[in-house]
């Protein structure tokens, strides 16, 4: 058990080292991240122009929301499960992953954690410390709020990871994923509340979003971070994340089993 864990951790370590070798990639990601932060910052600034608060959310809170959301997105984007799996399927390398005595989805997760922690430590963390110091938005005040936020953000990460890998595995059945991929990414960016919090949605859209797994990715952790979700309200939100994580992970296992069956029957 311990040994197995050590084996997966080795993938994390190696991928951390590998990220260090691809500095340019790291820089281009961070520039992209700063740019979308700038754009959305300006959009929200314009929307709030002349108002202290919209729908009971102060500009100060909204600023905090968009900053933490962009920080989380910066972290998420450092992992590339979708790209990797599509590449492996196209080249047929996926069959050879099955020659190894490990679980492929799990080893991908640990590999991703490596590049994410590299990116987090060397880019996201220093960048956002500076930005937060500069703008002084609301941040969690208590250790428990920090703890719950980090827990929620981790759950959100795992939900997105499961969804993205599941989607990537559909490559086995679809020859062209282009259009479907756009819909997938659009759904994530809209319904997860990545740039527009769910409480600004029209009622019908908000109701729809609340029925989908995506809100657990950014909206819930962001809302905890800015204190909009607090006290007793936090628990149902976390429970929602846990349930969706179980469902998404179950779906991932199901699709992976189907896909690996297809590989071993049809030869990749």
């Amino acid at each position: 058990m311990m040994k197995t864990f050590k084996m997966y951790l080795e993938f994390t370590r190696k991928s951390f080292q590998r990220s260090a070798a691809y500095r340019v990639d790291s820089w281009s990601r961070i520039i992209g991240n700063i740019m979308s932060l700038g754009i959305w910052g300006c959009i929200w600034f314009a929307l709030y122009h002349g108002h202290d608060s919209v729908e009971n959310i102060s500009f100060q809170s909204m600023l905090s929301y968009i900053l933490i959301s962009m920080a989380l997105q910066g972290i998420h984007n450092a992992g590339t499960p979708l790209w990797e799996i599509q590449y492996r399927v196209r080249t047929g390398d996926i069959a050879f992953e099955m020659l190894r005595p490990y679980d492929y989805p799990l080893r991908m997760l640990f590999t991703d954690l490596g590049s994410i922690s590299f990116h987090f430590v060397t880019a996201i963390l220093p960048l956002y410390i500076v930005i937060f110091a500069l703008f002084q938005p609301d941040i969690p005040l208590s250790a428990s709020q920090w703890g719950l936020f980090i827990l929620s953000a981790a759950l959100g990460y795992l939900i997105r990871y499961s969804l993205e890998l599941t989607f990537g595995l559909f490559t086995f059945w679809l020859i062209e994923t282009g259009g479907v991929e756009d819909v997938f990414y659009f759904s994530i960016s809209l319904f997860s509340g990545s740039v527009v919090p769910l409480w600004f949605f029209p009622d019908w859209l908000e109701r729809l979003a609340s029925l989908l797994p995506f809100q657990g990715i950014y909206f819930i952790p962001n809302a905890i971070f800015i204190g909009e979700l607090s006290g007793q309200e936090i628990w149902p939100a976390l429970l929602n994340q846990v349930i969706w994580l179980i469902i998404c992970y179950g779906l991932l296992r199901f699709v992976w089993n189907k896909a690996s069956m297809k590989i071993v029957v049809q030869g990749g």
Binding site: K3, K6, M7, E10, F11, K14, Q17, R18, A21, G92, D93, F96, L99, R100, P101, Y102
Partner: peptide
């Protein structure tokens, strides 16, 4: 499989070996 490698493409060769050491314990 002579036609394709099973090593990790962008790691130094020695690190592929070290990974295998962990994988196969």
């Amino acid at each position: 499989f002579g036609q394709r490698t099973q090593l990790w493409w962008d790691l130094p060769t020695i690190e592929s070996f070290e990974l295998l050491k962990q994988i196969f314990q």
